[in-house]
């Protein structure tokens, strides 16, 4: 019985997650994100890492549906946008403190996702993907018409909003640290799901849903839970992101590009892996930074995302991590 287990199935004992090296790798990533800009008060680095925390949060959560359960969610940005709207609205119209507004946004969006999920997750495969495109379009159209949320013009927060956090300069740091926390929670969530029975069920669904159901995986429930679970942290990230901007409008909140980028990131890093979503986000962010500063490429961002996605799907469907595991099979045990 030499076959050491790989992938989703870990050691025989009920080992706690903390005893495995990957737990500490995630902790180190979080610490690096928090400390790197704080040392020396580097605001420029902070702003660039802030975008990375959003990418990692979106990609990690998308990975739960796209990577584990094998369901394409073209509208994952809806969670981010609705979270942002709920949070900004509660603060601006009802004067809620940030923490309460954030929590309400996360809970409300997850609940909405559960309701959506129970409905549309009865649809299989391609039909589900179509419905998620529709959700994005419909929610954006709805919000653009929804007067309490400012319609197409959006919502503003007054600058006094940063006072409770110690003024604008300090507030930006607070929001950044909170986003790092949300990113860390996303990585741990992604890891915990993957190491659990729930995650095994999702991965079985992703491999062959009919077979999984016959084996006893309660697919409709699991899919709806996964969909709802993957909504919570992006909603928090959306709340923080738009709180920081002090402004939200439909075209920013439901920017389909961000949904697309999250998908490119997951595929680039390697779907169904925790590390892949993080490394993919980092690589993509670097690439994007280069493209945006390059005169020739800045207007071709969509073209390049698309071409990159196509090349990955055609030639490296396992992404970066799939490529690494192919050459170094034991890598699965260290980098989940």
């Amino acid at each position: 019985m030499s076959g050491k287990t790989t992938g989703t199935v870990a050691g025989e004992q009920r080992a706690s997650l903390r005893r495995r090296p990957f737990f500490w790798i995630i902790a180190a990533v979080i610490a690096a994100f928090a400390l790197a800009p704080a040392i020396g008060n580097n605001v420029e680095l902070r702003e660039s890492l802030l975008l990375a925390t959003v990418y990692i949060t979106l990609a990690s959560n998308l990975n739960i549906m796209l990577g584990y359960a094998g369901y394409i969610n073209f509208g994952s940005i809806v969670f981010f946008g609705l979270g942002g709207y709920t949070c900004v609205y509660l603060i601006s119209a009802h004067g809620w403190p940030l923490a309460a507004a954030e929590l309400a946004a996360g809970v409300a969006v997850s609940f909405l996702a559960l309701v959506f999920g129970l409905g549309i997750l009865r649809l299989r495969g391609a039909f589900f993907a179509l419905a998620t495109i529709g959700i994005n379009e419909a929610v954006q159209a709805f919000v653009s018409n929804f007067e309490p949320w400012g319609g197409a013009a959006g919502l503003y927060l007054p600058t006094t909003i940063f006072k409770p956090l110690g003024g604008p300069m300090r507030a930006l740091w607070v929001v950044y640290f909170l986003l790092v926390a949300v990113m860390g929670a996303s990585l741990y969530l992604s890891y915990a799901v993957k190491s659990s029975k729930f995650g095994l069920g999702l991965i079985a669904i992703g491999q062959n849903e009919d077979a999984a159901v016959v084996l006893g995986v309660p697919a409709p429930l699991y899919k709806a839970l996964a969909y709802s679970l993957s909504a919570f942290l992006p909603a928090l990230a959306g709340g923080l992101y738009f709180f920081k901007s002090a402004f939200i409008q439909p075209s920013d909140a439901f920017d389909l590009n961000l949904s697309t980028e999250a998908m490119v990131i997951v595929m680039l890093g390697g779907r169904s892996t925790v590390t892949g979503a993080a490394i993919g986000a980092y690589l993509y962010e670097e690439l994007r930074g280069y493209l945006l500063t390059s005169q020739t490429f800045s207007s071709f961002q969509l073209v390049i995302s698309g071409a990159l996605l196509l090349l990955i799907v055609l030639f490296v469907p396992g992404g970066l991590m799939g490529w690494i595991y192919g050459r170094w099979p034991r890598g699965k045990e260290v980098l989940e």
Binding site: T5, T8, S196, L200, G201, A211, A212, L215
Partner: peptide, 27 residues
């Protein structure tokens, strides 16, 4: 045959054990 193609033999069987009659925890 309907294998869960990318999962290992052990993982395939673990799915069976987890979600079968006994509803066992993963370990």
């Amino acid at each position: 045959v309907q294998p869960l193609a990318e999962l290992t033999v052990l993982e395939n069987c673990t799915v069976g054990a987890c979600f079968g009659r006994e509803n066992l925890p993963l370990y």
